[in-house]
């Protein structure tokens, strides 16, 4: 048993390292291949024109325009391995600090959206799958298909228009009220500002989870063991509780943790629409502003969070499923 755990941990450590290396290389290469000129993007054409050659050279050095890419990557990697993620060129602060602030802003948003879409998606998927072909199923399926073909940013704009512009129920953007000192911001303020973006992420997240859960539920309802349970007179709530729920829970766990990546990805666009100063918005700013150290760090942190989600699902699977738990322990 112990040995199995050592191998498991070792395997995943190797995976994390490989993942980080690959992601950083790809991100770096994409950044270098992007047509954005850091000087023009950050200083502006007009300001650049009025600068002396000396000033320009200084700026070019700051943004690393003339350093060979390989050397640049290696020096970044060397620092990264030593735990130094560098300084953000845009925020002029250590990258770790920027990420800490942005992540803590986003975390509440992501957590609300993740839990809400997980629970709602699971419930809708189960109801739909258990009632396949009936009205409830058709309504849920229709809703999910419409939502999953709706772009998240468009939905965000729509909600913004309805609830903020027309109805004045929710703020139009940002994560805290305007004109209030940082110390004066209450938790209620933060939640109030997070509602709309979290709602957008939840609504779009629900459809995916619900449709997947529905498929799994249908598979289970058509399985031999449910057929036999029905022949033994099991139906309704008991059939769901002992046969449907237990068996759909396993794929649901995987789905829930795999959905972290989608919520994360969705937050990039949604935060942009709501001017929500989270990790997603910082990623966009870093990308458009050629802030290489920040973008590299955000990409890697996101990848690690997603990796962590999948890893958690794997571990939970082993704990929940007796075929893995007991089957493994025997050998």
């Amino acid at each position: 048993m112990n040995r199995r755990w050592y191998i498991f941990i070792l395997k995943n450590l190797i995976r994390i390292v490989l993942l980080t290396v690959c992601i950083s290389i790809v991100t770096f290469a994409l950044m270098k291949a992007s047509p954005i000129d850091p000087l023009q993007a950050n200083v502006g054409q007009a300001a650049l024109g009025s600068m002396s050659q000396e000033q320009k050279e200084k700026l070019e050095e700051y943004w690393g325009v003339n350093t060979p890419p390989v050397q640049q990557y290696l020096s970044w990697a060397g620092d990264f391995v030593r735990g130094d993620m560098g300084t953000s060129l845009l925020y002029r602060q250590p990258v770790t600090k920027v990420i800490a602030v942005k992540l803590s802003n986003s975390l509440m948003l992501l957590a609300i959206a993740w839990i809400l879409s997980g629970i709602l998606g699971f419930a809708l998927g189960v109801i739909s799958g258990m009632n396949r072909g009936r009205l409830a199923d058709k309504l849920i399926k229709g809703y999910c298909l419409i939502i999953s073909s709706t772009p998240a940013f468009w939905l965000a704009l729509l909600l913004l228009m309805i609830f903020s512009v027309w109805l004045h129920i929710f703020p139009i953007g940002l994560s805290v009220p305007i004109g209030v000192e940082a110390s004066g911001v209450t938790l209620a303020d933060r939640i109030y500002h997070a509602v709309l973006p979290a709602l957008t992420l939840s609504i779009t997240g629900v459809s995916n989870i619900a449709l997947h859960t529905r498929e799994k539920m249908i598979d289970i309802m058509e399985s031999d063991y449910v057929l036999f349970a029905r022949m033994r007179g099991e139906k309704g709530w008991r059939l769901f509780r002992y046969y449907g729920f237990r068996n759909v829970l396993l794929p649901a766990v995987t789905l829930q943790f795999a959905s972290i990546s989608e919520i994360f990805g969705g937050s990039v666009l949604v935060e942009q629409v709501f001017s929500y100063p989270g990790l997603g918005q910082a990623a966009v700013a870093a990308g458009l502003g050629s802030d290489l150290p920040l973008l590299m760090a955000i990409t890697i942190v996101s990848a690690l969070i997603v990796f962590g989600g999948n890893l958690t699902a794997n571990i939970l699977y082993g704990l929940i499923d007796p075929r893995i738990r007991r089957g493994g322990a025997e050998k």
Partner: peptide, 8 residues
């Protein structure tokens, strides 16, 4: 036994 619930 494929007709038995695998998780019960």
């Amino acid at each position: 036994t494929a007709f038995l619930n695998p998780l019960m």
